[in-house]
Design a protein around this nucleic acid. Structure first.
Lengths: 225, 225
DNA sequence: GTCTATACGGGGATAGAC
DNA sequence: GTCTATCCCCGTATAGAC
């Protein structure tokens, strides 16, 4: 299993040819989808000839895979960090959502084209499907634990996990990818929206929000490097 | 403008060849995406030869367009009905969400492949994009009105509209299309999740939920015909 | 309304020179 | 590491017989 246990993708030099291929491909995947993007399109965007792509990646699907790793790996890693912290489940969940939203809005590549069922269903992406499932499990575990501790109302964890997913993804769609204008309030709004719906005692939200704000400030975005 | 003003798509005889093409195509679009589905695939699923498709639809994108109309048209129409009713904004929103979730889970075709930005960006789908924008406007109007009346907390209507979208869509993904096992509690759960997060006075939720339950029972699913 | 035959463009990927 | 040339498959769509 590739994902989990502190695994992180190697950092990418975004100015290298390989990095520029990844950036351009992510934008095209987001705009036209994986199947709607040809290797010729990608090559043209990077200003190289189409066969030169295959020097950097063995196949088209390896470009896609690299992008999923870059997005998903750190996300799983962050969630593992939340588990190790001493904080309430509501705080963990709130910080996770806000952090994920900020990272996805700030990172240099466009993640909108990456989590399409139709693409991930391809045979090549078995380990990516596993990674996604792992991430979903992590989220569900927080929801479930929060419910058992009495912090959250009783709601199907799998439903909540999917709702969070939907909120996260739509926030990215709204921004129109990393190129779009950053809505700086979105990370906290998204986290508030979900946690407000889950909390038994809603008067705690203000304090939780404040804690997340402080932590987010400390944890500088890694992606801007 | 095709959508709006009481417009509704013509009913489909799902046992006709045309209907079977629509059903099969919707499933394939959901599983492999629009670009990942060939007209050969569709024809094979319907047990006819590939060129015979073109007797029923002028082009591949006309099949897709017909499916979007079948899903989106009734949805817009239902929202218009909510506007004409005498009820609070919270009730309108709650009923809309629950109703939409139920319909999307119950209708015979699979809507999961229909709202992909990469596909809708194609030139052919201008009127579909307009229809989707119209629906989003309707939702935002309810959010905005509810906030002004003091029923809802202050949250960016466009953010909330997207969150609702995400929840709706993820609920469908969870079920795995119309073929999957229906979670009968999902319509009310989804509506609860959103409205709970929006309501200023959360003690109203139980009453709102009860009202939606009654109305939903009266409004039999149209799609099962 | 469905078929066979076929046109024609575009797709991913490889070979091999520089 | 990038190029040109090229292979070969698969895609949508049309023509025209039955």
């Amino acid at each position: 299993m590739k994902y989990g246990q502190g695994w992180e993708p190697k950092p990418v030099d975004w100015s290298s040819t390989r990095g520029r291929i990844l950036l351009a491909a992510s934008v095209l995947f987001a705009q036209r989808g994986y199947f709607g993007t040809s290797t010729r399109d990608i090559a043209e965007a990077v200003q190289i000839r189409q066969p030169s792509l295959f020097h950097h990646f063995q196949a088209k699907h390896e470009i896609f895979r690299a992008l999923v790793e870059l997005d998903l790996g750190p996300s799983i890693d962050r969630m593992n960090q939340r588990f190790e912290e001493q904080s309430s489940w509501a705080e963990k969940l709130h910080l996770s959502i806000a952090y994920d939203v900020r990272e996805i809005l700030v990172q240099p590549f466009d993640a909108r084209g990456l989590y399409q069922d139709a693409v991930l269903a391809l045979e090549h992406f078995e380990s990516e499907r596993q990674g996604i499932a792992l991430f979903h499990d992590q989220v569900e575990r927080v929801i479930e634990a929060g419910r058992q501790s009495g912090e959250f109302v009783a709601l199907d964890p799998s439903f909540v996990q999917r709702a969070i997913n939907g909120v996260l993804f739509e926030t990215l769609r709204e921004q129109g990818g990393p190129a779009g204008p950053m809505r700086h309030e979105r990370p906290l709004q998204a986290a508030d929206f979900v946690v407000r719906s889950l909390l038994v005692d809603q008067s705690r939200l203000a304090a939780i929000r404040a804690a997340t704000g402080t932590r987010l400030h400390q944890l500088e975005p890694a992606a801007s490097t």
